[in-house]
Design a protein around this nucleic acid. Structure first.
Lengths: 333, 333
DNA sequence: CTGTTAGCGCTTTCAA
DNA sequence: TTGAAAGCGCTAACAG
């Protein structure tokens, strides 16, 4: 596609192509030649051939990113963080989407590797043995985000802690008869960690309480449908594994005329913009997903440079006190 | 990075590397050799070097995508469509983000070109002369989405029509004293087309009516703050240029205790999932952004193959009747 | 400071 | 059906 090559420039300036190459890469060139070369490049609009360069220099400055789906706010935020750091470091993103499919996630890793990326960030659905296998054998670094596993490099939200914090908050507001509206335990992060954190707070600090579990999935709709199962338990508070789930539940409660938070308190996790936009604003724990993306990228870049992962900053968790949780007082019941 | 090369495979099989190359690209290879080569490749996990291959074959199978921001549902949907078609056609996405910056958008085009993509899709902020200039001179095809301009290839939502449809709907519900809560005319699509469509319906079909304009931006917050300016006009209905804007307004109205739709009807554009999730569900026009992405990609792929753009399918517009618009009857006022 | 030279890993004539 | 050879555009010793 680029008709004009480094050789053409060299010919025009009557120098060798090495000189042009040096000019391009900041090596020694006489002032005089610099001028000439600069001029010729501008005149011709010459661009050095990306592939030839990469073929020689080995490192591609390409970073592979695998995401589970594209149209998600969370994913968007993470990507934003990744993108920021990539720009600073002159890396280009090669993005692929696993479409929530485990097998495809693996295929994407292979494909990206195959395309010569220097490293891969996988926003993973879950880390299977196959992942660990690949992790061990791949000649380029990989970092997983979204799920924990000690066999690989990962970085993620402290879901356990977020659950714990929420437990504390519910307890402070005197809720003791609670429904946890969560997702399948197949999802380690949201399904297990987040839940356990919440349960553990109560286990450790509260004497008489009652938490019932209702399972839903990540969809708004399913969560809406689960509303009737939730109210069967007649809880004073419902803790939802995500804000989206909470939104679904809220719609159900609204339709039933059940007042939030006067009759039932609800809360979620995620801190989406809409969560604060609606009435009542959802009490939630906000994760700094952008920071997550940034850190993953910084780390992978270090790994690529054969350095170790430095900063192990904690991703911040911020309890956003909305209007959806009510303090029901000591003597309730 | 790939330690094992085509030469290694050739050596292992005692054939020439040409034969291996032929095997890889579906040329003539004897059955016997095919077997051997296949085995060697599997054993070594050989992958042909992306850059070397591209250096020879010229076309990169890389598609450049420039988006204004990442953490947006709309952008996510478009990307999803793009991604689908790319996968089908074995294209890889090189994504860059203009961060809502005109100059950077231009830089991204150049950078992507420089990296050897076969074509570029630009989700543009607006098509300036500089864009047109680049469009004319670039040796690879570009398609713009999001904004119209007859000097370039573009594909976009029919914003005018969407406004017109909404106008019709508001009129049917007997609203004649309306506020249009829109964005700056710098944005041709949302700021101009969408508004004009709405205004034009009234101009052409309604005799006495009153539309006031209030300007906001795309943010939830600003729109919330503009609430007080909106109610000054005492409208029966407010049409918001996006669902997000509508959300902001709704929060304001909620806080003021103004009932939707009993006291004021509101509507938006976009058809986000949350718009149906809240109470009252927002009446809105849903755009098929995924289809938009798909079409743009099909078109650019055709352009790359030097074919003309074929299908000029209309992107569908669907009026979603939520609960936020009330028919206020004939004799109102 | 500069030019010569030797590849990077692959595809593709061309002749066998 | 196969192998030899040339070369894609670039970088990086090396010797001058």
């Amino acid at each position: 596609m680029n008709k004009v090559t480094i050789q053409d420039i060299a010919d025009m300036c009557q120098v060798s192509k090495s000189s042009v190459s040096r000019y391009l890469n900041g090596g020694y060139v006489s002032k005089e030649n610099k001028e000439k070369i600069k001029e010729a490049i501008e005149k011709t609009g010459f661009k050095s051939n990306f592939f030839a360069k990469r073929l020689k220099t080995k490192n591609s400055n390409l970073l592979g990113i695998i995401i589970p789906r594209i149209d998600s706010i969370t994913v968007g935020k993470v990507l934003n963080g990744i993108n920021n750091i990539c720009e600073e470091n002159n890396y280009t993103i090669l993005m692929q989407c696993s479409n929530l499919n485990f097998k495809k996630e693996i295929d994407c890793i292979k494909s990206l590797y195959n395309q010569g990326v220097d490293g891969i960030i996988v926003y993973t659905l879950g880390i299977t043995n196959e992942h660990i296998e690949i992790y061990k054998n791949l000649k380029i670094p990989i970092i997983f985000i979204g799920q924990k596993n000690k066999n690989v490099n990962y970085i993620c939200i402290d879901d356990y802690k977020s659950g714990y914090i929420m437990g504390e908050y519910f307890y402070k507001n005197n809720h003791k008869n609670i429904v946890f509206l969560g997702v399948s335990e197949n999802d380690k992060a949201v399904g297990v960690e987040r839940k356990e954190g919440f349960y553990d707070f109560y286990k450790k600090n509260v004497s008489n309480y009652n938490i019932n579990f209702v399972e839903t999935d990540f969809s708004f709709k399913k969560s809406y449908n689960k509303g009737k199962d939730v109210i069967k338990f007649n809880p004073t508070g419902v803790i939802c594994a995500t804000d989206n789930i909470c939104l679904g539940l809220m719609l159900y409660l609204n339709e039933k005329g059940i007042k939030i938070p006067d009759e039932i308190s609800v809360a979620g996790f995620g801190g989406y913009e809409v969560s604060s936009a609606i009435k009542p604003a959802i009490t939630t724990i906000e994760f700094d997903y952008e920071l997550l993306g940034k850190m993953a990228t910084k780390n992978i870049l270090n790994l690529i440079k054969n350095e170790n992962i430095k900063e192990k900053t904690d991703i911040s968790l911020k309890l956003i006190k909305g209007e959806s949780v009510k303090d029901i007082g000591d003597n309730y019941e």
